[in-house]
Simulated scan of single mutants.
Amino acid sequence: MGLSDIAAGIEVVDEQRDGGVATVDRTDDPLADRLTPFAEELPCSPAEAATLVDAYAAGKRVGAAARVAGIPPTDGAKALHLFGEHVSPVGPMGREIVADWLAGELPRTEAVELAGVSDQEFALAAFVETHDPIDGAMAAVEGALSVDDVDKREALGETMDGPGEMDF
Rank of each mutant, 00 (worst) to 15 (best):
A126C: 10
I97T: 05
K78H: 10
G2D: 15
M166I: 12
V112S: 00
G2F: 11
P72E: 04
D148V: 15
M160G: 00
S45D: 04
Y56I: 06
E129A: 15
A57E: 08
L156G: 08
L42V: 02
D132K: 11
L35S: 00
L42M: 14
H81I: 04
D135N: 01
V112L: 01
E158T: 14
D25H: 11
G91H: 15
G63F: 01
L106I: 08
E41A: 12
G94I: 07
L124S: 02
G91M: 11
P133I: 00
I97N: 03
P92I: 13
G164C: 13
R61M: 00
A155D: 11
P107L: 07
E110G: 14
V117P: 01
A22L: 09
A155P: 05
L52E: 00
L52Q: 00
A77G: 09
D5R: 12
V147P: 06
C44M: 08
V12L: 13
P133F: 02
V90D: 08
I6R: 14
G84F: 01
D132V: 08
D33H: 04
D119T: 14
A103R: 10
T74W: 03
G162K: 10
D25V: 15
P92Q: 06
S146G: 11
G157I: 03
E105A: 12
P46F: 02
D132H: 07
H131Q: 13
A126F: 00
D75E: 12
K152Y: 09
D75V: 07
A103D: 15
T74R: 01
V147R: 12
L52Y: 04
G143K: 13
G9P: 09
G164Q: 15
P89S: 06
A103G: 10
M1V: 13
A49I: 04
D151Y: 13
G104M: 06
E15A: 08
A50K: 01
E85T: 14
A99T: 09
R17C: 03
E129G: 12
L114R: 12
